[in-house]
């Protein structure tokens, strides 16, 4: 039983089902990666876990508690952090204000958490007073991840965090994500760059047409000739 588990999820955005009996989950301190071709339902699966669409069948549990009926906002309160793929920073607000907004639901002292985020992403400390909209793509992603970390979540969910950033920045970002996982946070992410992502994954899910195709450790998936041929370009 994973710490966060979306089990046998079936559903869509109201029309036809997009997910069919799909299961994804992640343990504390681990990185789980969801990969698959375009239109495989990767992002949809993630959104289903976060409560952004209604699933007809299946359930979502966190730490053994059934959270299927909760709104996304309530899930944030329960300890889930979510970084959307696009529009994931407040462009007109400074980096520091972005982080403060991340901690909006907290009423305790947030300076410690902010210092941790600045330790993790030193560039943000340097640019703390600059509007997030003026930062580069990679830096924006750091702000987005930092913002989500400000609630001190138990689970961090990332929707294609490396979309549109250069390979160097991508490696750097993955390093940081591993670092975050080491602090005991469960990380679930959807990735387009399957090879690199599976490299750092403790667990990998290969989806196609809303179904689980392969589920294994990242290493094993990378080694699997079928997966390589079909999804990783040989």
């Amino acid at each position: 039983m994973s710490f966060l588990l979306g089990k046998n999820m079936t559903g869509g955005y109201g029309g036809a089902d997009i997910l069919h009996d799909c299961t994804i989950g992640v343990e504390k301190g681990e990185v789980a990666v969801v990969v698959g071709p375009n239109g495989a339902g990767k992002s949809t699966a993630m959104k289903a876990v976060f409560g952004m669409l209604n699933i007809r069948e299946g359930n979502v549990t966190m730490d053994g508690e059934d959270i299927t009926a909760l709104t996304p906002q309530a899930r944030v309160q329960k300890g889930m952090g979510f970084v959307p793929q696009t529009h994931n920073v407040f462009t007109s607000m400074s980096v520091e204000e972005n982080l403060e907004m991340g901690a909006f639901i907290r009423n305790d002292d947030i300076s410690g958490t902010m210092a941790q985020v600045f330790d993790l992403f030193p560039i943000l400390k340097e640019k703390r007073n600059q509007p997030a909209g003026e930062l580069s793509g990679g830096q924006r992603q750091q702000v987005a991840v930092g913002r989500a970390l400000m609630t001190q979540p138990k689970v961090l969910m990332l929707d294609e965090p490396t979309a549109g950033v250069s390979p160097i920045v991508m490696d750097e970002l993955f390093d940081r994500i591993i670092e975050i996982a080491r602090t005991g946070i469960a990380i679930l992410m959807v990735e387009q760059n399957a090879k690199q992502a599976l490299n750092i994954a403790d667990k990998g899910y290969v989806l196609a047409q809303g179904r689980n195709l392969y589920t294994d450790t990242g290493e094993a998936l990378l080694a699997d000739p079928d997966v390589r041929k079909a999804f990783l370009g040989g």
Partner: peptide, 19 residues
């Protein structure tokens, strides 16, 4: 006040932040 600016800037993200 900041939550208001945040809402105005990016409604969905503000909702995700619990505004």
């Amino acid at each position: 006040g900041k939550s208001m600016r945040a809402y105005s800037d990016n409604e969905n993200l503000a909702l995700l932040s619990g505004v």
